[in-house]
Design a binder for these strands. Structure first.
Lengths: 306, 306
DNA sequence: GCGGACGCACAACCGATCGTTGTGGCTCGC
DNA sequence: GCGAGCCACAACGATCGGTTGTGCGTCCGC
């Protein structure tokens, strides 16, 4: 492929061979093999070199894309200087959405969004420490757990919304206050005990006297959404930026919560020394997100936004 | 690469091997070779299959892009059912610009823009007839030249603008009429004798009593632009959609011509029988372009716009 | 607790491939 | 007309990429 691209650009197999450090015959055979495999002629041979056929012209653009893609693929994992790699909890989480926004604003950034498949934030911290990822959207509620060479910065606050089906009594509300949620069953399955989320909901329940039910295993978003769509008394809380997809016939509603806004604070864990140079722009992007109202409620362990 | 992608998606080398029609050992060796070449581990091996490492996750997206690119590359030239292939005079011509607009509006279209390296429109017609290209933006002024199985439709009209340097007496005009061009030297190098362009300028000169100088070979746009930038009496005509790039210090100006607008009519040559299915949408796009004023001047051989 | 099923890796082998060197044919320019 | 330049073909050796056969580790069921 590279031989083809260079030969097309230089117009001579000989020059391409010199550049690639092989003999002219080798390049000739590569092109011939490519042509045989594709079943078309890519070049017309002339006395002064080669010239692209129409098929060759059509193929060239794609060949360039493939070569560039291969270069990017290698760059993404090249030990030492690889692409910026950030761990998110899930590809539909607010974290991923915000990162996607960042990338659309900076499309030249070599960015890889990955998901460490671990629940324990300490494992994520260890991955940052080891350099497996350049940063991780995790929160460590106990600062003592954080190693000296890793720091945690406030990323952004994710305001919560109520997600309910059409039969729920609150379904027609345009906005809600936390007080209005009292007495309604809020179901948030799959919260691991003693995790940051469990802590968050504990504080939320205590502060606003709510009824949050974290019982039962989480069988996936689809199951949760199915239950919500059919139920007249179950609701759940989601981040306003979280991406949820549901069948069009489900008719679920997302209702913002205000007075005060409920914010789940998201943090970014990154190495204290020699962070990846691309992180600077990501953090700047996070800083530029619209701040929440001043009366926003946050859990006790929330680090103050910068 | 395909083995890696399928193995990552299926989570088992065995299944990937079955799908690809090779043995499990072959896939194992392919992955191992890829890992050796890249210098990183892509999978962690477990008792129930394989699981992507962080490097593997980062690599997967790129690998998918490469595989998809390879598929597109093959589709672009597959004999029989290949991508829509249209011949334009140059990649900076109005034709190419309009095709680019079309593609941005229909990004799902498999479209290849190529340039037949021939001056003679009859050669382009022959290429369409032979199926080497699906359509060509050429004009045949003499209908008798057109074979029975090829037809020519009006594509769009390209209104002309005057391109001048800052020292030219007309440089500060906001718009111009053809009459105002009288007496000024208009230099359009590289017009082949008895070509459609020569015919166009002949009629233009006769009709408006202009002074168009087609003498001398064309040494490329750069030379032309250099001359224009320095000259106080040379100007040239360009299509309003033509793309010209010049150094920022050149300070060239494009001045629209009105009352009447001067239009170069562009045609599309396509086979009468079994045209490529993608051509329909292209022609629809051409029809949707804004029409020129009713008093627009066109050469005698212009087919009336649909 | 143990045997079998399952999945991946290693070894040996073999044909195809890919690189090399050497050579021939073609076109263009002097 | 002849040499220079470029590409294609031929022959050959190293390597690669596939196969079959086998071993090892883990998980599951009896």
């Amino acid at each position: 492929m590279r031989s083809f691209v260079r030969a097309a650009e230089l117009g001579q197999l000989q020059h391409a061979a010199d550049e690639l450090g092989v003999t002219q015959q080798a390049v000739s055979k590569r092109i011939a093999a490519l042509e045989r495999e594709l079943g078309v002629r890519l070049f017309t041979r002339t006395a002064r070199g080669v010239e692209l056929t129409l098929d060759g012209q059509a193929f060239l653009a794609h060949a360039r894309a493939i070569v560039a893609g291969a270069d990017r693929a290698v760059a993404a994992i090249r030990p030492g200087s690889r692409a910026l790699r950030i761990d998110v909890l899930g590809l539909r989480s607010a974290q991923a959405v915000v990162l996607h926004d960042f990338w659309r604003a900076h499309p030249e950034t070599a960015l890889d969004v990955v998901t460490l498949r671990v629940d324990d934030p300490r494992a994520a911290v260890a991955a940052v420490q080891a350099g497996d990822v350049d940063a991780s959207f995790r929160s460590v509620t106990d600062p003592a757990v954080l190693p000296r060479d890793v720091r945690m910065v406030h990323a952004f606050d994710s305001p919560l919304e109520l997600l309910v089906g059409p039969r729920h009594p609150l379904a027609s509300a345009r906005t809600l206050t936390p007080v209005q949620l009292r007495g309604h069953r809020i179901w948030v399955p799959g919260i691991a005990p003693r995790s940051e989320w469990a802590d968050f909901y504990d504080q939320l329940v205590t502060h606003f006297d709510l009824r949050v039910d974290a019982a039962g295993p989480h069988f996936g978003d689809e199951v949760l959404l199915d239950v919500l769509a059919d139920s007249a008394d179950v609701a759940t809380l989601v981040g306003s930026r979280d991406r949820y997809l549901w069948p069009t016939n489900h008719d679920l509603r997302r209702i913002p919560i205000q007075d005060p806004t409920l914010a789940y604070p998201l943090s970014l864990v990154l190495p204290r020394a020699n962070p990846h140079p691309g992180l600077r722009a990501v953090i700047d992007h996070l800083r530029s997100l619209a701040p929440l109202p001043v009366d926003t409620w946050r859990p006790s362990w929330a680090t103050t936004p910068a």
